[in-house]
């Protein structure tokens, strides 16, 4: 390929531009739908009644020994 001839690269360049345009359109859509406002409220949407805010929901399973040593457990 001639070093000054980059027309064979045109498809990939056009794809890159198309990719960029799609992302900008997505950004516009999200702004229009209000997704870029009231950030604090949106951060809390993952909490539910079953898994509420303020509750730790994961820890190592306790060993059999520590379970056996608990009061009231046979």
């Amino acid at each position: 390929m001639d070093v000054l001839e980059f027309s064979p690269l045109l498809p990939i360049i056009l794809l890159g531009i198309a990719f960029f345009i799609v992302v900008v359109m997505m950004l516009y859509w999200s702004a229009k739908r209000g997704h870029l406002r009231d950030f604090d409220a949106q951060a809390k949407t993952i909490f539910t009644d079953e898994e509420p805010e303020g509750e730790i929901s994961d820890q190592f399973p306790e060993s059999r020994k520590s379970l056996r040593s608990r009061p009231g457990r046979k």
Partner: peptide
Amino acid sequence: PKVLGRPIHSY
């Protein structure tokens, strides 16, 4: 956030 029960620091 789920495990800690704490929202992400800065959305």
